[in-house]
């Protein structure tokens, strides 16, 4: 595996918000004869406040798995994922469950590739939920959610519906709004522009720029080279010697 970080001096002076070192992930498929599949190993990088680091590498090189381990959604076999949370370092790889939940609520946003719709819950409420969990008053949270969805081209009528029947691009925009609304200090983005048109891509690029400007640390996967060039300060390459 080769791994190289090309650093520009854009964010060199800012404090690190996320430090990953020696990270390795292997899946053991017990019900398929115990076959082991390595997702990635020896992954190490850091992301500073106000900076966006893009993970790059071919399909299957483990980019999404890295994001999921950082979010605590996957378990790592080796290494540490240190996040700055309320002024302290928390290692997501070893922290107790309740600490991981607290980090997710207060310090970490995760825009995954697919929205998990909840029956009967309107899009605007799905987006407002992270704010409400932070203690924001319900009406104010809903108003902010509506404004953000409108900015992403989800109309007033659509946002009052449960997104189970939305198109892929509409669901993705709901997911993006939910990730950005609470302005988390650390934000993980898994192909946030994959199924968006030009105008909405530009909106997401603008949202990323605003997040960086307020000091957020962003770690993302951007297949679209144009988007990546516009948002990323550095790239980190996950390359496999052998295809899986």
């Amino acid at each position: 595996m080769t791994a190289a970080a090309h650093k520009t001096d854009a964010a060199a002076a800012s404090p690190a918000m996320l430090e990953v070192s020696g990270l390795a992930k292997t899946f053991t498929l017990h019900i398929q004869g115990g076959v082991r599949i390595e997702a990635f190993r020896d992954v190490a990088f850091s992301v500073a406040a106000g900076e966006c680091l893009a993970l790059v590498g071919p399909s299957g090189s483990g980019k999404s798995s890295v994001l999921r381990v950082v979010a605590g959604n996957y378990l790592a076999q080796h290494g540490s994922v240190k996040l700055r949370h309320r002024g302290q370092w928390v290692d997501m790889a070893t922290a107790p469950h309740r600490r991981v939940q607290e980090v997710r609520r207060l310090s970490l946003g995760h825009v995954s590739q697919f929205l998990r719709a909840i029956p009967r819950v309107p899009a605007v409420e799905i987006v407002a939920e992270p704010l409400i969990r932070l203690g924001e008053e319900r009406a104010a949270a809903l108003a902010r959610a509506a404004a953000l969805l409108a900015r992403l081209g989800i109309g007033e009528r659509l946002m009052q519906l449960a997104p189970a029947t939305f198109s892929g691009g509409e669901q993705q925009r709901v997911n993006i709004a939910r990730g950005f609304i609470a302005e988390p200090p650390i934000l993980l983005l898994d192909e946030p522009t994959a199924s968006l048109d030009r105008a909405n891509r530009d909106t997401v690029v603008a949202l990323i720029g605003e997040a960086k400007a307020r000091g957020a640390a962003l770690l993302g996967i951007f297949h679209d080279a144009d988007v990546r060039a516009r948002v990323a300060d550095r790239t980190y390459s996950l390359a496999k010697e052998t295809a899986r």
Binding site: F27, H30, N73, L75
Partner: peptide
């Protein structure tokens, strides 16, 4: 474990 972790990356 956390519900999403156990369902998305089950160990046992």
């Amino acid at each position: 474990g956390l519900t999403d972790q156990v369902l998305d990356d089950p160990q046992h």
